[in-house]
Design a protein around this nucleic acid. Sequence first.
DNA 1: GTTATGACCGGTT
DNA 2: CAACCGGCCATAA
Length: 129
Amino acid sequence: MTTKKIDNLSPLAQRTITLINSIPKGKVLTYSEVARLIGASGCARHVSYILSSSSSKHDLPWHRVINSQGKISLPLDSGYFTQEKKLLNEEIIVKNGRIRLEHFLWKPSSKEVKKILSGLPLHIPLKAR
DNA sequence: GTTATGACCGGTT
DNA sequence: CAACCGGCCATAA
């Protein structure tokens, strides 16, 4: 069994991973949306940092995260096609490396997000610590 | 402490 | 459209 040990990660990482795990099949989120939904607006860059450093370790649907332009951010020589294939496999249309956010962007209610993140520690910005 | 690094973003050119 | 720029933020070293 794959016990997901996210407990020893930073609150930001825990929340990021948990939310991404909840993206429904056939839907996507942008890096900045992930950041915003977990209460860390502006941390889009760090969301990508977390993914690149520990995606496989958590069995994540990492392929459902793309950039704000609706494009795949992975380099062509490093995972781009893997991601494209995973997206196509769940009926998400990728055309010229681009996905129509108006069709596939996941828009959970704040209530739903709250439920998903319940129990996790809050992320407190560095400035406020 | 400081510096370097990202699967980023928004606005501008 | 695409390319560039400056800003953004938490980590790793």
